[in-house]
Simulated scan of single mutants.
Amino acid sequence: MNKIEPRGQRARLWISWLVVSLLLGYGVLQTLITAAKLFTS
């Protein structure tokens, strides 16, 4: 039952890292936009 699949595991790892970095990048972008609005107004 408990079969180890290195390829599937690696793909899942890459996908999770991709999602995390995308969310992080999005948050940073939103922060920069907000900061720019605050400093330019």
Rank of each mutant, 00 (worst) to 15 (best):
M1N: 01
M1R: 02
M1S: 00
M1C: 00
M1V: 02
N2G: 10
N2P: 00
N2Y: 01
N2K: 06
K3L: 06
K3D: 04
K3I: 01
I4M: 02
I4K: 10
I4F: 02
I4L: 08
E5H: 06
E5A: 01
P6T: 01
P6R: 03
P6I: 05
R7V: 08
R7G: 06
R7F: 09
R7D: 06
R7H: 06
G8N: 00
G8T: 01
G8V: 04
G8P: 01
Q9W: 05
Q9H: 03
Q9Y: 01
Q9S: 05
Q9F: 09
Q9T: 05
Q9N: 00
R10M: 06
R10S: 13
R10C: 03
R10L: 11
R10N: 07
A11D: 01
A11E: 04
A11T: 00
A11S: 07
R12Q: 10
R12P: 13
R12S: 12
L13H: 00
L13C: 08
L13Y: 02
W14L: 03
W14Q: 01
W14V: 01
W14N: 01
W14S: 02
W14M: 03
W14G: 02
W14R: 04
I15F: 07
I15L: 08
I15S: 11
I15K: 12
I15G: 04
I15Q: 09
S16P: 05
S16E: 11
W17E: 07
W17G: 03
W17N: 08
L18P: 04
L18C: 13
V19T: 03
V20T: 15
V20L: 10
S21W: 14
S21L: 11
L22G: 09
L22Q: 15
L23K: 09
L23H: 05
L23Y: 09
L23F: 11
L23D: 11
L24K: 08
L24Y: 13
L24N: 14
G25K: 04
G25P: 07
G25A: 10
G25R: 04
G25V: 06
Y26W: 14
Y26T: 11
G27Y: 07
V28D: 12
V28Q: 12
V28I: 11
L29T: 13
Q30P: 03
Q30N: 15
Q30E: 12
Q30G: 10
Q30A: 12
T31P: 02
T31F: 11
T31Q: 06
L32G: 06
L32D: 12
L32C: 07
I33N: 03
I33L: 06
T34W: 09
T34A: 14
A35C: 15
A36T: 15
A36C: 13
A36G: 14
A36F: 15
K37E: 15
K37M: 07
K37P: 06
K37Q: 15
K37G: 03
K37F: 08
L38G: 04
L38E: 15
L38T: 12
F39C: 14
F39N: 14
T40A: 10
T40G: 05
S41A: 15
S41C: 13
